[in-house]
Each structure stands twice: as C-alpha cells, then as structure tokens.
Design a protein around this nucleic acid. Sequence first.
DNA 1: GTCTATACTTCGATAGAC
DNA 2: GTCTATCGAAGTATAGAC
Lengths: 207, 207
Amino acid sequence: MRKAQTLAEAAESPTSTRDRILDAAARIFRDKGYADSTMNDLASALNMKAASIYYHFKSKDEIVEQVLNEGTARVFRSVKCAIAQLPDDVNAKVKIGVAIREHLHVLHSDSDYTAANVRIFPEAPTDVVKRHMFERRLYSKFWVELIELGKKAGEIDQSVDAEMAHMFIVGAMNWSTQWYSPKIHNIEDMSDAVDSLVSKGLFTSGP
Amino acid sequence: MRKAQTLAEAAESPTSTRDRILDAAARIFRDKGYADSTMNDLASALNMKAASIYYHFKSKDEIVEQVLNEGTARVFRSVKCAIAQLPDDVNAKVKIGVAIREHLHVLHSDSDYTAANVRIFPEAPTDVVKRHMFERRLYSKFWVELIELGKKAGEIDQSVDAEMAHMFIVGAMNWSTQWYSPKIHNIEDMSDAVDSLVSKGLFTSGP
DNA sequence: GTCTATACTTCGATAGAC
DNA sequence: GTCTATCGAAGTATAGAC
C-alpha cells in the first residue's frame, strides 16, 4: 500500500506487513491474473508461509478487493492532482491531454495496483466487483465531466456521446497493458499517439 | 464451430458433437472467463456428463485453443470479406470505417468465439497463447496495412505509428466487451463513435 | 458415445504449537 | 506473528461398464 501513515509508523517501520502483502499481491496479480495467483505465491514472494497471511487478511477475496480499490484510487488521485496543478484558464483539450499522459504513466510505470486492477477486474468475485464499482464510477464521472466541459466550451461537438467517448479513450489505454513492453515502446510516444488520436483523429482533414 | 462441412455432414447432422461442445465453450468462456468455467459447466449446458467431453477432446486446454483460434479467425474473415466487397477505388478512410463496423458487429452480435477470445486471452495457458499468437499477428498485420495504405495515399500523416495506432483502435473496441450492454447501447452508435474518433478526433479543429 | 465411479492434484482456509 | 500439519472443497482427468 505505502500510503499515508502516522509519524510513529513512518519512523519505526517503513511499511506494515499488511501493506507488504498488498504490494506483493498487486505485483503478482498484475503478472499472473487472479485465479493463477495462489496464497502460496504471495507468501513466497515475502519469505513467508501461506498460513501467515491469514493473520492479516481473512481471505483471498479481502486482498483482491483492497488491490482493486487501491488501483482505481491511485490513478484517479494522480490524474485529478495533475489537472489541478494546471492554470485555471487552460482549455479542455489541454486537460484531457494531461489526463491521458497521467493515466498511462500511472498504469505502466507508477502503480502495480492500477495495472493489476485492469487485469483482474473481469475475474474478480461478483460481490467484490459490485462494491468496487463505486470507485470506478467516480473515476468515470471525472472523465465524462472533462468531455462535457469541452462540449460546453464549444471545443467538442455537441453530437459527441461523452459516456461512450470516455469508455473508448480509457479502454484504448487500458488495453495497452496487453501489448506494452518497456523494451519496445515508451510511455511518451504512447501518450502522444493517444493524445493525437483524440485531438485530431488519424486522418488529415486539410487539403 | 459451425463452419464449412461436407455435404453429407450437412445433410444428416447439422453440427457434430465436437462442434456443439465448442459452441457451448465459447459462450460459457465469454460469460465466466476461463478459470471459472469448469468441464462440468460445459457438460451441463449440453445435457452431458463432464467425462463424456474427454471422448471428443483430450483436455480443457485443447478446447480453449480451438476457441481462441476460431475467435480470431472469425473476426478476421468477416472484416477481410467486408472490405473485399467494396469497390476498388474507395480510400483508406472508408475501408477503416468498414473494418471498425465489422469488428464491433462480430464481437458483439455475431460470434461468441471472438468475444470469448478477447476475454480469455490473458488467462489462457502459456503454450496455448504462444501458438495462438500466429493467428493474432495475421489479423494485426491486416490492420497495420490498412493504416499504411492511408499513409501512402496521403490521407494519414507520415508521423503516425501504424503499429501503435492499430493497437489503440482495436483495443478501444475490444475493451467495449467490458461495458457494452445491448439494453443500453447499440452497435451502430458505437461504430459511429469509433469511426468519428478515428476520422477526426474529439475536437473540432475548425472555427 | 455416454455413463458411473473414482483417482489425483491443487488450493483456500483452519487448528494449534511456538 | 509465524510456523507445521491438515482438513475439505473443487476440479481435471482416467478406468471401465453399458
């Protein structure tokens, strides 16, 4: 997890065992998916035995729920923060460009939680997914509002369905977890490609 | 499966048991993913017992490999065929629009195999995936060539990375398996949205 | 070709010692 | 808090009758 801690915790123990388990789970879920990651896999990565994990979590489902929620929370927090730091008068086009860059950056080089979230979401237990949808809806709402902002300002055509458009944009980026390789691609180029596609499409309209 | 059969087969038995198993597998894999679909689930859907399946297939892996390959083959065949039926002189923009429409149509209303393919690809066994990549690369190559065609004709800017662009476009569409609901959305609107995004982006360049 | 019965394995989870 | 030992539930796959 490695999020905000009390000063005392930060002083003596850099991360709690609970958080170390979650960190390992996020990385392993990202790499192998949910079903193929066993409690023993998590324990081995931490030089522990599987039974010890049950002192910190009551079930595998509790772990996956934490990883899912933290994954969405992290990308949302980073994107929100990046946009908040822009001058007040920037237009929707710039804001969406920043959101694209930040989303891809968190997904591929900042947070195992977000990458794990994208991978394990479809195979997570039904009741876990049900509760997790609350977090996802908040993040979706943020994107939809960015697009609506552009529509109000006349930057984006009124005929654009903001719900759908945001799904295609975020989906295109999330799908990159299936093909992105740091040895072949780099995040800057990917960001430019998505930003350009969203800004002006693939085709040159000019003469 | 339900693909081409000999005349004799078509006459007396509309589909072989082997193909009925594959059809059921495609639908169940699409709905529940690979790990959560048991041999018993497949058998139940066909009013059979799990053991009977092993007369037709030697393992669950053999089934998933067939479903994966057939999934890519079907969408590829349909898209290729749709474009082949266009007049010779249509430009890349029209061709890509047709490819988008056909891909979404196959994915959401034509083939459980293609939808299953998109869902179970990340959790399929490593050696199965390895062999399946051959099919995927053929389909990818087709999309990349469509984009290169547009670049050669001057319709698409030379700076566009065709490999990446095709991944983002196909990825945006494939991701829709995670949110598309026939009760809320319709495939025509989705096709229009993707086509518009690819053609001219989200933002109005003009005055 | 399909069945019943069952072998074999893996994995989540618990009990209880240390 | 972590360990060893083990239970119990699934689930893949096989053996052999019909």
